[in-house]
Simulated assay, not measured.
Amino acid sequence: MTAALVLTGANGFLGWHVRVLARTLGLPEPIIVDRSTLAAPARLAQSIDGADRVIHIAGVNRGGPEEVEAGNVNLARQLAAGLRACGTPPKTVVFANSIQAGNGTPYGNGKAGAAALLAETTRWLGSDFVDVPLPNLFGEHGRPHYNSVIATFCRVLADGGTPQVSGDRELALLHATDAAGLLLGTTEQRPTVRRTVRQLADQLERFASIYRSAEIPELADRFDVRLFNTYRSHLAPAPVGLTRHADARGNLVEAVKVHGGGGQTFCSSTVPGVTRGQHFHLAKVERFVVVRGEAEICLRRVLHDEVLRFRVSGDEPAVVDMPTMWAHNITNVGSGELTTLFWSNDLFDPANPDTYPEAVS
């Protein structure tokens, strides 16, 4: 079997981001290698034989010291056995390593051992080996108390709690989509940002406090946008009602209030039965507000099946913010014209629209 892309650890946090980014790049659907296939050399060889690129993400992050160290080496050993069983070895093998490799901890030693084993195996086979040491990763749909302190803080805040900082230190941070680009070989840049744990907790608390009232916090740079989107991924998508101010002249509704920024606002009309959207964004913060008519807004996380559906009306204005990496659409389900206000945090750039076609259902 020949495949363009093969992934281990594809169903984890980083694996999902790699699959989403590959989708935006128009790459063929990758072959997913699960743990049972990794443990079966002949079956594994069938999956990776002649592949253009094998990305090894599967690892052991939690457990006892011996379990973590030996677990990461053993997974690499299983992949190596499959590589040696191939009739046509893959062109390139990429290892999602860690900057902690070789730091003397069980995790660091396990990662270093895995890298050394794969480097030797690919050298012997004639495949290219790409070792990608990654810093602390964050991003949408990270697993709290497992993937990162940011995911933990976001979950605590989403549940109405207050993050607790114990042992403040500086972290080197990289968004998971940027890490995915390095693993796919589509970028050589490492837009790493350094923040202390305390700084992260304080910024996320500000985001949560402002966003609870449906207002948008200041998003001064690329990191802020991605951190805000990470926080939003821990909130269940849902319409948020807006306050209507009425007097003898009529009604007024404040649809978008942005702290320290602008963005772009535009309006559309849609005839009955027509659907707009059917796409997703990697980073864009986007808000829908129906100001006249009846609509159904549908959302689905990319590579997942569940579809969320919300009925909204201009008679009871509400904001619905689109989560990043969720396909979304809006359909006029009324008998008259639908008027919708849209807002995004950045100006539309035709050369880089951050809009990827994807039907919701």
Rank of each mutant, 00 (worst) to 15 (best):
residue 314 G to Q: 01
residue 14 L to E: 04
residue 246 A to L: 12
residue 146 Y to D: 12
residue 146 Y to K: 09
residue 23 R to E: 15
residue 40 A to L: 13
residue 175 H to Q: 07
residue 358 E to D: 13
residue 34 D to R: 07
residue 186 T to Y: 15
residue 2 T to R: 14
residue 338 L to G: 00
residue 160 G to T: 10
residue 72 N to R: 12
residue 243 T to K: 14
residue 49 D to M: 08
residue 302 V to Q: 05
residue 124 W to M: 15
residue 303 L to R: 13
residue 253 V to A: 10
residue 61 N to D: 04
residue 292 R to G: 00
residue 90 P to V: 06
residue 166 S to G: 09
residue 222 R to W: 06
residue 283 A to H: 13
residue 6 V to I: 10
residue 123 R to H: 11
residue 348 F to Y: 15
residue 181 G to R: 02
residue 300 R to N: 10
residue 218 E to L: 03
residue 256 V to K: 00
residue 35 R to I: 13
residue 327 A to L: 08
residue 330 I to Q: 03
residue 130 V to Q: 06
residue 269 S to D: 07
residue 107 Y to D: 00
residue 20 V to A: 05
residue 291 V to W: 04
residue 327 A to K: 08
residue 5 L to M: 10
residue 275 T to Q: 08
residue 304 H to G: 11
residue 192 T to M: 12
residue 231 Y to P: 02
residue 208 A to N: 09
residue 142 G to V: 08
residue 213 S to D: 12
residue 79 L to R: 01
residue 344 S to W: 07
residue 235 L to P: 01
residue 260 G to I: 06
residue 204 L to T: 00
residue 68 V to K: 07
residue 51 A to T: 01
residue 12 G to Q: 11
residue 307 V to G: 06
residue 106 P to F: 12
residue 55 I to H: 04
residue 106 P to S: 12
residue 162 T to H: 15
residue 254 E to Y: 09
residue 280 F to V: 04
residue 154 C to L: 09
residue 77 R to M: 13
residue 81 A to H: 05
residue 38 L to N: 11
residue 359 A to Y: 05
residue 102 G to N: 12
residue 112 A to N: 00
residue 283 A to Y: 13
residue 55 I to C: 11
residue 310 F to D: 12
residue 140 E to V: 10
residue 184 L to W: 15
residue 61 N to C: 02
residue 53 R to C: 01
residue 204 L to M: 06
residue 113 G to F: 14
residue 226 R to S: 00
residue 271 V to A: 09
residue 355 T to K: 08
residue 211 Y to T: 02
residue 136 N to G: 11
residue 19 R to M: 10
residue 163 P to F: 02
residue 181 G to D: 04
residue 304 H to W: 05
residue 195 R to M: 13
residue 268 S to R: 09
residue 251 N to K: 12
residue 256 V to L: 04
